[in-house]
Design a protein around this nucleic acid. Structure first.
Length: 492
RNA sequence: GAGCGCGUAGCUCAGUCGGUAGAGCAACGGACUUUUAAUCCGUAGGUCCUGGGUUCGAGUCCCAGCGCGCUCACCA
């Protein structure tokens, strides 16, 4: 019997207990931080080869993972070990181990990472189990894990220490891995259609291609003010001028705006451009990207979204902006006086606003909440679309669509404007009632110069990857699909 | 940016009317060879977010700040 040492003040006492075990492991001549561990198999696979009848020994397996649970009955111990493919019980019987091996086994804490060799079987209670023949210590955990039953609930901790969320909360790891699968699927959809991936600058001299406040930074050696990109558009179009006929980029963009359940200051977009296409080709491609991504998940085209169900079976309805406006706002969007009346009734500020801006405001207020979708809203008023080709014979209509699903704006696409003189004019046209930073119209002479060389007629598409993952995984906060969303500085 | 809510042990949470801090899990010591959030006995563990204020006395009431959440605004 040893007298326990005086307990150090919390929280170091918990770490101290683990450090003592670390030393004890070293005294057994073992490395508490582990070594290369070859030829182990995924736990998911070990579960598959496990026999389904009692008293039948299955094949030998070797797994590695983190200890999540322990039922210690003295000479018989049960552990639950988890890797990124699943979780399995390990049974350790004292009679199967030498004295030193048993000493090591008694030093295993919750949260430690171990390797196990043994035969699969099921126990009396029907639990798939590895009957351990050998235990290899792989990594000591010095931190106290969260409560074994309730897990970790404190949202702030889960966001600041996402690894805790990934390890201990059901479904988090799976959801994050789904994000990767969806992105892989997008790449293979595009590869099959002969698109190539490009990497364009993140640091921009002019933050163009979208309407948003940029983050500002500075290059010291060149003494240049620079912006983090708010869109991928203008560089990818320059590549089209250069003859890269089908090009895309999946990349981070940065917008210096508010944070809420559908907005994070840095987020991931895909933009793609297809020479000799138009916005109709982009609708077909959007459907293909969604359907293929769903195939790599569970393949179910009818997917839950909270209380609702979204049916992704193509083709999705196309609805004209003007028709939707008439249906929900109750007047013709070209009747400026009537639009003003509706706006006033909705308590929208009317003064000093260009009619096109007002139409847009009324549309958002009256129409968007009705767009449960998936629905392509097509043919936007051209005044709000300075980068979009106008419809042939209808200069007031831009060949643009936005994809809406339950109020979320998922995608935005154009038949791309490739007339350099019109582009230059539109960059100059600042609608009244719209602040410069809220406008897509930002003069970019270098881009106009590129168009003068000649960009083929083309379709272009942008999809918010984070929102796509949200929808396909039924996650209602963008923070659920971004590993490390932005938080304020942690106070010491 | 505004309103509302939350912040107590490593974790999950109680804490009544303002009277000096509680449980479960985890930890530590002990018993246990088929458990399922094992069980049983025992021990230890607290800057009650921070700083002021009221009070004989504050986890509790008041003010300010910090962090997080929700709603709204902003973000076409």
């Amino acid at each position: 019997m040893t007298t326990p040492a005086p307990t150090p003040p919390s929280p170091d006492r918990l770490e101290a207990a683990r450090l003592e075990k670390l030393v004890a492991i070293e005294q057994l001549g073992l490395d508490p931080w582990g070594q290369r561990f070859d030829n182990h198999q995924p736990i998911g696979q070990a579960r598959e080869v496990c026999p389904t009848e009692q008293d039948v020994m299955g094949p030998e397996v070797r797994i590695a993972g983190r200890v999540l649970l322990r039922n210690d009955r003295g000479k018989l111990k049960f552990l639950h070990v988890k890797d990124w493919t699943g979780r399995i019980q390990v049974m350790i019987s004292k009679g199967d181990f030498s004295e030193d091996d048993w000493k090591l086994i008694e030093l295993i804490d919750l949260g430690d990472i171990i390797g196990v060799d043994g035969k699969t079987r099921i126990t009396r209670t029907g639990e798939k189990t590895i009957s351990a023949a050998k235990v290899t210590f792989l990594t000591k955990s010095l931190a106290q894990p969260p409560e074994k039953f309730h897990g970790a609930r404190d949202v702030e901790m889960l966001l600041r220490q996402r690894y805790i969320d990934l390890i201990y909360n059901e479904g988090v790891l799976e959801r994050m891995l789904s994000r990767g699968k969806i992105i892989d699927s997008i790449r293979s959809t595009l590869k099959a259609r002969n698109f190539v991936e490009a990497e364009t600058p993140v640091l921009h001299s002019i933050a163009g291609g979208a309407a948003a406040r940029p983050f500002t930074t500075h290059h010291n050696a060149l003494d240049m003010q620079l912006y983090l990109r708010i869109a991928l558009e203008l560089h990818l179009k320059r590549l089209m001028v250069g003859g890269i006929e089908r090009v895309y980029e999946i990349g981070r963009v940065f917008r210096n705006e508010g944070v809420d359940s559908t907005h994070n200051p840095e987020f991931t977009m895909i933009e793609l451009y297809q020479a000799y296409g138009d916005y109709e080709s982009m609708m077909e491609l959007t459907e293909a990207i969604f359907v293929n991504a769903i195939q790599v998940l569970d393949g179910n085209l009818k997917r839950p979204w909270g209380e609702h169900e979204v049916d992704y079976t193509p083709p999705w309805p196309r609805k004209k902006y003007g028709d939707l406006f008439k249906e929900h706002a109750g007047c013709d969007m070209n009747d400026a006086a009537a639009v003003q009346e509706v706006a006033k009734k909705l308590h929208i500020e009317v003064k000093g606003k260009d009619p096109a801006v007002l139409v847009n405001d009324v549309f958002e207020e009256t129409v968007e909440s009705h767009l449960t979708g998936p629905v392509f809203v097509i043919d936007y008023p051209s005044a709000m679309c300075p980068l979009t080709k106008r419809k042939k014979g209808h200069p007031e209509i831009a060949e643009r669509f936005e994809l809406f699903i339950h109020g979320l704006e998922l995608a935005n696409a154009y038949t791309e404007l490739n007339d350099p003189r019109l582009q230059e004019d539109l960059f100059r046209t600042q609608l009244t009632g719209l602040k410069e930073e809220d406008s897509m119209a930002k003069m970019d002479h270098d881009f106009v110069r590129a168009l003068k060389t000649g960009m083929p007629p083309a379709g272009g598409l942008g999809i918010g990857i984070d929102r796509l993952v949200m929808l396909l995984t039924n996650s209602h906060s963008i923070r659920d699909v971004i590993y490390f969303p932005l938080l304020r500085h942690e106070t010491e």
